[in-house]
Amino acid sequence: METRRAEFWVPYRLIAPAVALEAGLVIGPLLVGFWYSLHNVRFFQIRSFVGWDNYMRVVTSPEVLGSLAATAIFAFFSLILTFALGFALALWLERDGRSATLMRAIVLVPYMIAMLVGSMLLKWLFSQEAGLSQLALGPLGMGDVSILANPKSAMAALVFNAMWRDAAFAMIMLLAGLKSIPPSLHLAARVDGADAWMRFRRITLPLLRIPILITVVRLLIHFVNILTFPLILTGGGPGNSTEVVVLRMFRLGFQDHILGPANALAILVFLANLALVAMLLLLFRRAGRL
């Protein structure tokens, strides 16, 4: 009886440290953030309870709405291009060989560099006055073009930053998926006369659904929550054109010290993240592919 009771508690004891860590580092701050979001917090001190006012203020703020649009544009293009490049690299470097191993290592370099350092490097690259872009654009008669001073090209530079760094992540995830497909399936299909496109569509793609899902979800969450790229590369500018929602949140909280709306926005971003993941999972289930 005693032994059975002791055994009953073993799993709980084993997961207790992880739960405690989660509660201390995630749930606790989340609750504190929610508490702050319901108050007027001035100069780091709670002054009064304001209910949902901070949430109303955030959802009607033109700056926040602008940052949501910037986030949508950035996340959409970054996701498509990063995934496409990562997938292409994975298919290209699937076969083992000396050159493939070397290329994999080269492709991984941007991913291994710290995000901050990588964005700084790109800033120097794109800078018209102090960077290398002039060397490429000057001979083409585009010497007066400043990539970072134009809203559209600044956003393109931001998307490039995401693609340059995170395509390697997509490649690793998809390469692992590709390696798990038994070669015998492709051989059998070949014997049956299937061409490369048919094999890709009927074998590779269906068997890669889960790696694809994981990669897409992971990349989407990463891009929606990105701070370092816009903070370092474009500073949210010019004219707030690349100020994504997390950068706005960062500014409200850590630079403007307006903690009520900052926490309200943080809670909304958290809920949006949950909704995004749920939506993607639902889509895949509905398609009957999971």
Binding site: S127, E129, S146, G235, G237, G239
Partner: peptide, 21 residues
């Protein structure tokens, strides 16, 4: 003033000043 000033931090501009630009 260069158009890129809209994307330059104060430190970037000071570096340019020190570089003689």
């Amino acid at each position: 003033t260069p158009r890129e000033a809209v994307a330059m931090t104060s430190d970037d501009a000071i570096d340019q000043f020190a570089a003689g630009r």
